[in-house]
Nucleic acid binder design. Structure first.
Lengths: 334, 334
DNA sequence: CTGAAAGCGCTTACAG
DNA sequence: CTGAAAGCGCTTACAG
């Protein structure tokens, strides 16, 4: 853009009658400047409508004020509102703290990919990842000292700050709920088991069984991939192998919907003969018929937590992983 | 991050045996450099794993390599996958052209809001907006020479480059389809009529009626707001005022679903007694029962088109508004 | 508490 | 076709 003539430190300094160094101090919150002079600077800034040039500031200070949000192309960014929602939560928190969000939707390959290069090139002050199938890149970046936050639980134990939903607890309570409704034979359709979330939800399902003293047979544990189609396929198979099936916990709402579709087409009523619980509380959980009983996770809060964790790191504050609670939302399907 | 010692022009210049100016020329694609020397520079870059410092580059050149994607907080960024999907399309195209996407989710207020300041401060080379209720800010920025692209059709005629789906054509063909299926009385549930998309879809609906020589009564035109609830509310009202209603075109899939829910609860079968067509081809269109006949728009392509239009502008190339075609997807509901 | 000065790593007229 | 030099607008030791 044809840059309007914006004032610089030089003119602020002149009208305030101080040096540029002092202007810089005031604008960066250095407490040591004499209050009177600081006020003069602020007045000049106000009067001239001055806005700091962040690029120049970045070059001089080494801090860009930019945080990358990295989304793997592989993820179903398209069609799944999850990622967009998390990202908007992140963005809002960062913005409140004077930082901006650089969105990178790209294949997050190995250490020599474009994303890796960008992140290593010092053009961002930190990066927020969504949990990946591999922690290699993340561990590498961490070693280089780049502040990182992972949304989702990392695979390895490398102490990388992360935020996540209480997947285990949510799945546990969903399964418990099915049992409390009288279900004797509860299957699970897992998400992509390469993700930690899917594993944790499976663990919650198993824990509920363990506590009730009934271990589910292998064939009740179906490896899905979070897609509507996989929900349908596994429901079909379950119908054949377990005619007495009376409960299903699906690792997300979409698979739950797929399963319900199959059950009803096969003449099994939901929740009459088979109860179904999903996970997410996506829009479809409310709009479908029967409406879906599901485990709600607060996706915006997840993004905000990720942003906060990044801020804390940049400020050198202490921080712990953040695990957000879930809530079982009971509707018609179970 | 503790910046690793990255090479600078100084060391590239030295190992290639040329001046820094020459390094700059080669890296910026200046054709005038002698091929041999250019090659020496490229070799040095390769050998040293050099990556240009974009911040320094930005300060010196005035170009930041950053494009803002501005999303109004008001929009249902949360829960509606539309915005995230468009944005990922934008991001991909920009990335291929060496630009990065800065995501701003914030209240896009008047000329003195934070977003306005940021965009005016020269920290981005351009901005992509989603169509707003008002064009004021956009017109203002345009006057300042900031390259802009609008996703959606602008309200005013200010010649701002935009990309949009063929809302008129999509609605027209949806309505025609209902008529061709024998519907005699077709209502419309519009989107938020403050949006140009909602108006255009209404126009398409009206045009189809005009051509068939039957103008719909006022009470068949219901002002919705794109929400599931408004779909339900208007369907309820229609049921009371028009017992002989046999077709509904809803301006998005969510409202269509709301309407179907109400119709079926009232004992009206879809499509048996009332046919319903939606708009978007969102995920729910496929997963619902009955599955939804709808107007598909290619949301990723919309984002990519917006990105391309921005690139064209930055390169000083000619460009025209881009209107993407829609496709009527026939499923069970009509 | 404050200022002069060097510097961040590129880009770009300008002169040749 | 090429290089020396000034400059982009901040930040930050350093010296006082």
């Amino acid at each position: 853009m044809a840059p309007l003539l914006r004032p610089t430190y030089a003119v602020i300094a002149k009208t305030a009658g101080v040096s540029e160094a002092t202007v810089s101090r005031v604008l960066n919150g250095d407490e040591s400047v004499h209050p009177d002079r600081a006020q003069r600077v602020r007045d000049a800034v106000e009067e001239l409508g001055y806005k700091k040039n962040r690029v120049a500031s970045a070059l001089a200070s080494g801090r860009t004020g930019l945080i990358a949000v990295v989304i793997d192309d592989d993820l179903s960014v398209f069609s799944d509102p999850f990622w967009g929602t998390v990202t908007s939560g992140v963005s809002r928190v960062l913005q409140e703290n004077g930082l901006h969000t650089v969105l990178m939707v790209a294949p997050v390959g190995a250490l020599d990919g474009g994303v890796a290069h960008y992140l290593k090139s010092g053009e961002v002050d930190g990066a927020i990842f969504f949990v990946l199938h591999s922690d290699i890149l993340v561990n590498h970046l961490k070693k280089q000292g780049l502040p990182l936050v992972i949304t989702g639980t990392p695979h390895s134990n490398a102490d990388i700050p992360f935020v996540d939903t209480d997947n285990f607890g949510g799945a546990y309570s969903a399964t418990k709920h099915l049992m409390s409704q009288g279900c004797k034979k509860v299957a699970i359709i897992t998400g992509d088991i390469g993700t930690t979330a899917a594993k944790q939800r499976l663990d919650g399902y198993l824990q509920a069984h363990r506590e009730s003293g009934t271990l589910p047979s292998k064939s009740l544990i179906c490896e899905g991939d979070y897609s509507f189609e996989s929900g349908k396929a596994h429901a079909q198979k379950l119908l054949e192998t377990h005619p007495d099936l009376d409960g299903v916990f699906a690792s997300n709402d979409l698979m739950a919907m797929g399963a319900i579709t199959v059950f009803e087409n096969a003449g099994k009523s939901v929740p009459g003969q088979i109860r179904v619980v999903g996970f997410d509380d996506a829009l479809i959980a409310q709009t479908s018929r029967p409406s879906l009983t599901t485990v709600r996770q607060d996706v915006v809060a997840l993004g905000e937590a990720a942003g906060s964790l990044m801020i804390a790191q940049l400020n050198g504050q202490d921080f712990e992983p953040i695990i957000l609670p879930t809530e079982l939302v009971i509707r018609e399907s179970a």
